[in-house]
Design a protein around this nucleic acid. Structure first.
Length: 491
RNA sequence: GUCCCUAUCGUCUAGAGGCCUAGGACAAUACCCUUUCACGGUAUGGACCCGGGUUCGAAUCCCGGUGGGGACGCCA
C-alpha cells in the first residue's frame, strides 16, 4: 500500500492539456504550490492526458509556459524545456502510465468489484434519455453485470471491445472531511456503475487520478469544486484498492461578472491573454491568491515570500468568487510602481516594439522616463500610448490638434515657444526650466489657460489633451521639440 | 428530475454567540493638490438573501424556503 514515508506535504497540479491555462487552473496550481512551499513540502506537476482526442502536445507546451511565466515551478514532473519526466515517481504523464492502470484494473476485476461492459454508446445514450424522461437518475442500468468474468474474457479474446466498469453496490453513506467544506456526505444511490477503462483500454479521469494520487504519495489534493462529486467515485476506488486517502480540499469556482462559471464566453480567461494585455505575472498571482483566500493580517499586496509565509489552508473561502478585472488592474498598478525601473523597461520593450515605437536606448533616459511615467500606467499596454509622444518618429497631428492650431493666438505661442527652446543651451530641459519657459511665453504673448497650454501641447505631442507636459518635456531633446514646433507652424 | 456544495456593501473579503452602531480593499461620489489627465491626500454613501427556531443575546448555531454553482459521460 503506497504510503508517504517522508511525512512531507506533497501537492500536485494535474492539468489536462486541452488548451491554454485558465485563471481557475492557475489559482489551483498557485494554492498547491504555495501550500507545498509553506510547509517545506513538494509540488508535483502531473499531466492528465488520457483524453487522446482533446489532449495535444502543443497545449501541454502552452500550459507549461504559462505556469513558468507565473513562476509556479514544480519539483517533479515534465522538465520545463524538454518535457521529459523528472522525479522519482515518473512518468508523470498519464498516457505513459497505462500499464499501471491496467494492473489495478485487473486487480479490481479479480476482486469482483468491477466487470466488463459491452453496451454500445447508442444503447447507453438511449437508456439515459429514457431514465431522465421517466424521472429516474440517468445511471447505468447494470445490463452487463450478469456477464461472468470468464465469459467476458472469452468475448474479449475473440476481439470484442469491452469497457471495465466499477461495480457500485454500497448501501452506506460515504463521508469524507473536506478541508474547505467540512464533512461531506454522499448518500447511497448517487452513482451508477462507472467506467474505469474505456473499451479501447484507455483509463478515465477518476481512475487514473486516484491511482496516481495514491502512488505519487500526494498528501493534499486541492482541486476545483466541480470535482466534489467525483470524489465519491474516487473514494470507492481508494476503498477497493486499500489505498490511503489523501486530504481533499475543493476550491470554490471562479465566476464571471454575470455570476456564471468563468469561461471563454467571458472573453479573456487565460493567463496567456492577460499576459498579452500587459499584466505582470506577480500581479496575476497576487490577485488570484485573493480570490478565495485572505491574509490573516488583512494584507493585500504581497511579495512571493510573504505569500508563502502567510498562505495556509484554513482561510479558504467555500463560496464562489467573481473575477474582477478592475481590481486586478489596481494590483497590477501597484506592482508596476514598485518594480525597479530597468526591469520594468525590459518588460515594456516587447510592447513598444509591437507598436513600432522607437525610443532612446540611453539607460539614463529610460530610467528618467520610467520614473516620470510609471504612476500613469496600470498595465504594460498603457505604456504604449504614454510613450508614443516620445517616439523618435514623425509627430502625428490629430484633428483636434489641427483645430487648436487654427486659433488666432496659437501661431504666436508656438513661435515663441520654439524661440525659447532654441535659446536654451541644454539638450534636455528640466521641469523647472520648462516652467520658466512657459511662464515667459505666457507673459510675452499675453495668453493664458487653455490658449497657452493647448497649443503648446499640440506643438509637443500633436494633440491638445493627454500627458503631463512636465513629464514629457524633460524626456524630449531640444532638437525634437524644435522639429515638432516647426511642423505645427508649417500648417 | 435526483443528489452535492454555497449565500456579508456593486466586487473581493474580515467576522469562530456579546468586542458589530458589521471592519478593510477595489470601484463610485465629493473636496484638496494640480494651469489638462493621472498620482497622491481627505471625506461620504453602500451589505449580513427570506422565514422560522435555539439562546438572556444570532451575521455567527439548527431547520425550511429562495437564489447561485456543480454533478449525475467510454470528458477532465
Amino acid at each position: 500500500m503506497p504510503k508517504n514515508t517522508i511525512g512531507k506535504v506533497r501537492t500536485r497540479f494535474a492539468p489536462s492539456p486541452t488548451g491554454y491555462l485558465h485563471v481557475g487552473g492557475a489559482r489551483t496550481a498557485l494554492y498547491s504550490y504555495l501550500y507545498a512551499k509553506h510547509t517545506g513540502g513538494e509540488y508535483v506537476l502531473r499531466v492528465e492526458d488520457t483524453d487522446q482526442v482533446r489532449s495535444t502536445e502543443d497545449a501541454l507546451k502552452m500550459q507549461v509556459e504559462d505556469l513558468l511565466w507565473l513562476g509556479l515551478n514544480w519539483d517533479e514532473g515534465p522538465d520545463p524545456k524538454t518535457l521529459k519526466d523528472l522525479g522519482s515517481f515518473a512518468p508523470y504523464r498519464q498516457s505513459q502510465r497505462l500499464e499501471i492502470y491496467k494492473k489495478y484494473s485487473d486487480q479490481i476485476l479479480a476482486q469482483g468489484k468491477a466487470f466488463y461492459c459491452f453496451c454500445t454508446d447508442e444503447d447507453l445514450e438511449r437508456k439515459r434519455q429514457k431514465a431522465m424522461k421517466e424521472g429516474r437518475p440517468p445511471h447505468y442500468d447494470g445490463t452487463c453485470r450478469k456477464i461472468d468474468i470468464e465469459t467476458a474474457k472469452q468475448k474479449i479474446s475473440r476481439g470484442e471491445k469491452g469497457a471495465v466498469r466499477f461495480l457500485v453496490t454500497h448501501t452506506h453513506d460515504v463521508k469524507f472531511n473536506d478541508l474547505i467544506r467540512g464533512e461531506v456526505v454522499f448518500p447511497p444511490g448517487m452513482l451508477g456503475d462507472f467506467i474505469l477503462l474505456r473499451s479501447d483500454g484507455m483509463p478515465v479521469y477518476n481512475f487514473c487520478c486516484t491511482i496516481d494520487d495514491a502512488l505519487m504519495e500526494i498528501t493534499h489534493v486541492l482541486r476545483a469544486e466541480e470535482h466534489l462529486s467525483n470524489t465519491l467515485r474516487q473514494l470507492l476506488i481508494y476503498e477497493a484498492l486499500g489505498f490511503e486517502i489523501p486530504i481533499f480540499g475543493h476550491l470554490s469556482i471562479i465566476l464571471g461578472a454575470d455570476r456564471q462559471k468563468l469561461s471563454k464566453r467571458h472573453g479573456d480567461t487565460s493567463c496567456h491573454e492577460y499576459k498579452e494585455k500587459g499584466y505582470l505575472p506577480e500581479a496575476i498571482k497576487n490577485y488570484i491568491a485573493l480570490l478565495g483566500w485572505s491574509s490573516p493580517k488583512g494584507q493585500e499586496i504581497f511579495t512571493e515570500s510573504e505569500l508563502i509565509e502567510q498562505f495556509d489552508l484554513d482561510r479558504l473561502n467555500p463560496a464562489a468568487a467573481v473575477f474582477d478585472e478592475v481590481k486586478l488592474k489596481w494590483v497590477n498598478a501597484q506592482y508596476i510602481r514598485t518594480m525597479p525601473h530597468a526591469e520594468l523597461w525590459q518588460k515594456l520593450l516587447p510592447f513598444f516594439d509591437g507598436a513600432g515605437l522607437k525610443l532612446p536606448s540611453d539607460i539614463e533616459w529610460q530610467d528618467k522616463a520610467i520614473g516620470l511615467m510609471k504612476t500613469s500606467m496600470e498595465t504594460l499596454v498603457d505604456a504604449v500610448e504614454l510613450f508614443r509622444p516620445l517616439s523618435l518618429t514623425e509627430l502625428d497631428l490629430n484633428d483636434e490638434g489641427k483645430e487648436v492650431l487654427k486659433w488666432e493666438t496659437s501661431f504666436k505661442v508656438i513661435t515663441k515657444w520654439r524661440e525659447k527652446i532654441e535659446g536654451c543651451g541644454k539638450m534636455y530641459l528640466s521641469t523647472a526650466e520648462f516652467d520658466a519657459i512657459i511662464n515667459s511665453v505666457k507673459d510675452e504673448c499675453n495668453v493664458k489657460g487653455k490658449f497657452l497650454f493647448m497649443p503648446t501641447r499640440v506643438a509637443i505631442i500633436g494633440k491638445p489633451h493627454g500627458a503631463e507636459l512636465k513629464q514629457l518635456v524633460p524626456l524630449l531633446s531640444k532638437d525634437v521639440l524644435v522639429a515638432r514646433a516647426n511642423r505645427c507652424l508649417k500648417i
